[in-house]
Amino acid sequence: METTEFEPKIVAFLCNWCTYTGADLAGTSRIQYPPNVRIIRLMCSGSVDPTYVLKALLDGADGVLIGGCHPGDCHYQSGNYKARRRIIALKEILKQAGMEEDRVWLRWISASEGQRFADTVRKMTEFLKEKGPNPMKREWAV
């Protein structure tokens, strides 16, 4: 049965300066994590447009991870503070609209936190396996 186990697909939007670099560090440190994550590099968490997240979910992504610098560390001063509000609003909208907001994770992961990045991907993969596939994967009428 193991071969047919559901493998969630996670789309990750990572800020160039912290989380993307943290993911690189996980690589250079050879920290293993599940291959379920697909990374899109953006310059800052503050440039993650909710429309991207919505599109990923409606397309059928099982999870969306948004990674940025820790508060106070944004390369552009305040991108992550704005991202925080925006993602909070988005998640509330998803919740109210009857969508599963817990498929969207926002995490602060610095350039030195390769381990934290790997752990986050692992936890998210496990969480999504538990939760099951995004129903949008099958729904054509969206």
Binding site: M43, C44, G46, S47, Y52, Y76, S78, G79, K82, R86
Partner: peptide, 22 residues
């Protein structure tokens, strides 16, 4: 500096960052 904060804020995407367009 190309951070993209403006583009996210603009609903109609009248402002976009080159190389990171929607």
């Amino acid at each position: 500096k190309g951070c993209g904060a403006c583009a996210v804020t603009c609903p109609s995407k009248a402002i976009q960052v080159r190389h990171f367009r929607p």
